[in-house]
Amino acid sequence: MTLRRKLEEKFFRVLTALVALLVVFVLAHILYTIISKGASSLSWEILSQEPKGGFYMGGGGGIVNAIAGSFYLAIGASILAFIVSLPVALFINIYLIRYRRLLIGVRFFLDVLWGIPSIVYGAFAFTIMIFFGLRNSLGAGIVTVGALIAPIMIRAMDEVLKTIPIGLQEASYSLGSTKTETAYKIFFKQALPGFATAVLLAFGRGIGDAASVLFTAGYTDHVPRNLSDPTATLPLSIFFQLGSPIEEVQNRAYAAAIVLTFIVLCISITARVLYRKK
């Protein structure tokens, strides 16, 4: 081997390793920055109280409005998305399985749907709301985020269902089951852990999204009591507080960022642990 080839090999081995290290470092640095900045402001008060008077000028209170709002919103959206995603995923794998081209077409389409940015979902939902004269509300937010995360959920469920052998389906039919019974009794049971992962992934995506709720869910200092109340969300709470020139308010934004990051990390790690155990 000539020296040049040897050097080239060495050079790229080292270069790629360094770049990989850099990438890991930068991503770790994000977590480090958020935690080190926000940890000092994190307190029980922040986690448990609604904003008090003058909150955005540095007054007392906490962000429970945003934490609770985000959970309501993401849970509602996940449930809604699940209700429409499950039939679609089952339909694809039971009814369309014999039509290869159609199957590919539908999967392709869902992947494309996944790529539409959340700001467009938000803007579109907003026009619908104006058309029907609806106000910003938890309910509107749930529907918008639900539509945003459903394609993710469908594709994740689809990936799980894909792995179930077609023989199982045929065995079920040969015992006299209808397609529906096969779908819900056989497929559902087989794929349950995978489904839990799919739902959690979509939930994680939903709770972190800001652009779609900006238009639809509104913002308020109170924990919403019903679907027609507007609701605060963590991403927007972070965003608004960070926009303040007052340091205490900014610090609370960092604390809120820790809360959000923590929730999302917990969810995605749980999702992966579940899937691995299967």
């Binding site: 640095h29 992934l201 972190g208 800001a210 963590l234 991403p235 972070i238 960070l242 934004a253 960022a257």
Partner: peptide, 18 residues
């Protein structure tokens, strides 16, 4: 995979800080 799921607002905060 997990890092890909971190909300964009968190990246934004890091951007403002760093």
């Amino acid at each position: 995979d997990i890092l890909a799921g971190i909300p964009s607002v968190v990246y934004g905060v890091w951007g403002v800080l760093v």
